[in-house]
Design a protein around this nucleic acid. Structure first.
Length: 442
RNA sequence: GUGGUCGUAGCUCAGCUGGUAGAGCGCUUGGUUGUGGUCCAGGAGGUCGCGGGUUCAAGCCCCGUCGAUCACCCCA
């Protein structure tokens, strides 16, 4: 069989890289749990009408079909989920009777999109998602809390610094309305393209597509130009002289987010009034996050408030959430070597073998170490000790244990320093930083 | 889906106006009679992505195809 070729957009990690990903996931999970989020998983597939509601046909959904299905019967109408927010909304509706509200959950799973892959953008990728939903009403303070949880979760990971750009759709849409623009959603959608198209093209679009006057278009662009690391953005908005109740609400909510972030996670959040987030289902605060030095990757963590995503007609479940793009964040850093792990196996100690007959004794020594939580494996063969040390070295295993024959004490060797000394197998501890592989940034 | 670029050893790549394939790293054996990393000497490893065409002769030129990659679109 010829060597299989990789599949574009379906990245696979080597063991050393996977260790990094696992530790990041573990870290995020612990952080989310520290904030009281309960973990759930949803099935990989959703009915297509769930995935495509709101006319989100631009999403490239992978559909599912049984190989043996009749050609005529068509597909079963199932597709792989392309994010974790839509399945979560369905989950909330389906299990509403058994959930306690406000419900806060985290969810870390793969997602699939059929779009053409690029750096930081894959057809199969992992997201770590947190959301808080409530019944009927969702207090605005959750829009303040969610980014702080993310900041807390990202803290302590050896990643480049992140900057979260935050806006509030009430603010933008209220401003447009106060300006006299009719289709505020369309205006938002056009402003969202500012980074791509530039101010001139956006101005033209506003005038042509939503019949904004040149003055209105200029005002929209002025608003989009406002950004600040603190609440000073509010004064600059008011200075533009537009008034609207929705605008006031948005200003107040965004100021609350920015003020809290300034307090609890200085430098993380900047108010950036050009952020709009496509059209989607967002109705309040919206978030986008870039990795400093890797802005080209796009947003590694986005989300926002949605008021009507989950509704069964009688009850609506407004929510707010953020998704960390784990693959987008890690895969580029892993493939350039900017992030790695101290070793490619969990093993902390390799038990050497002087002769094959000693394997049972070596296994017994290994068991005693494992009983105290130290990851151990026994050498694959009684090769020359030099070879066995090399076996450990190539995998990054820090210690080799020589059982010692004929009544000799076992000895342990730190193969990085070369130091070797007799050990008491029942009390020896590796340095804490050597017990498990660690993430290291280059 | 549309367009550009690229496919040579396990990896990174060289290969001139067409003349029958190379380096570094890695791997492996020995020097080193049971303790690696340095050094030295050897060795293995290639249907040049695949198919066709031009030619006395193709890794190189032409056509097709597959794969990757970048940009657009969209987004984690």
């Amino acid at each position: 069989m010829p060597r299989p070729q990789p599949l574009s957009g379906f990245p696979e990690l080597l063991p050393r890289q996977h260790i990094v990903e696992q530790q990041v996931v573990d870290h995020l999970r612990r952080a989310f749990e520290l904030h009281g989020f309960a973990g759930i998983q949803t099935r990989a597939v959703e009915p297509l009408d769930q995935l495509l509601r709101k006319g989100e046909t631009s999403k490239e959904v992978y559909v599912l079909r049984r190989l043996q299905a009749d050609a005529e019967s068509g597909d079963a109408g199932l597709g792989l989920h392309f994010d974790l927010t839509v399945p979560f909304a369905r989950y909330v509706l389906e299990h509403a009777g058994k959930l306690q509200f406000p419900f806060r959950r985290y969810q870390i799973q793969p997602c699939w999109r059929g779009e053409r892959p690029q750096e930081g953008r894959y057809r199969e990728f992992w997201q770590a998602d947190i959301d808080i939903v409530d019944r009927d009403e969702l207090p605005a303070h959750y829009e303040v809390e969610i980014p702080l949880v993310i900041a807390d979760a990202l803290r302590g990971l050896p990643l480049p610094p992140v900057r979260m750009h935050v806006n509030n759709r009430k603010l933008s849409q209220g401003f447009y309305r106060g300006l006299g623009i009719g289709d505020t959603e369309a205006a938002l959608r056009i402003i969202d393209k500012l980074d791509k198209l530039g101010p001139e093209a956006v101005r033209k679009l506003l005038v042509e597509e939503i019949e904004a006057s040149p003055d209105q278009a200029d005002a929209c662009l002025e608003l989009a130009g406002i950004s600040a690391p603190d609440t000073s953005f509010a004064d600059r908005v008011r200075a533009l002289g537009v008034t609207d109740p929705l605008l006031d609400e948005g200003l107040e909510e965004l100021a609350a987010v920015v003020a809290a972030a300034e307090q609890e996670a200085p430098g993380l959040v900047v108010a950036d009034l050009r952020i709009a987030r496509g059209l989607d289902y967002y109705t309040g605060t919206v978030y986008e996050t870039v990795l400093e030095g890797h802005e080209g990757l796009g947003s590694v963590c986005s989300g926002g408030r949605y008021d009507t995503l989950a509704s069964d007609g009688r009850t609506t479940y407004p929510g707010v959430g953020l998704s960390i793009g784990i693959s987008r964040l890690l895969v580029p850093l892993l493939s350039t070597g900017a992030l790695s792990a101290t070793r490619e196996v969990p093993t902390c100690v390799l038990v050497a073998l002087a002769e094959e007959e000693g394997r049972a004794d070596a296994n017994a020594l290994a068991r005693r170490l494992r009983a105290r939580g130290i990851p151990v494996q026994v050498s694959p063969s009684a090769a020359k000790f030099g070879k066995q040390i090399k076996f450990a070295d190539k995998r990054g295993i820090p210690f080799v244990l020589f059982p010692g024959d004929g009544g000799q004490d076992p000895e342990i060797k730190d193969i990085r320093s070369g130091e070797q000394s007799p050990v008491d197998v029942d009390s020896w501890e590796p340095p804490a930083e050597d017990l498990h592989p660690r993430i290291v940034a280059a």
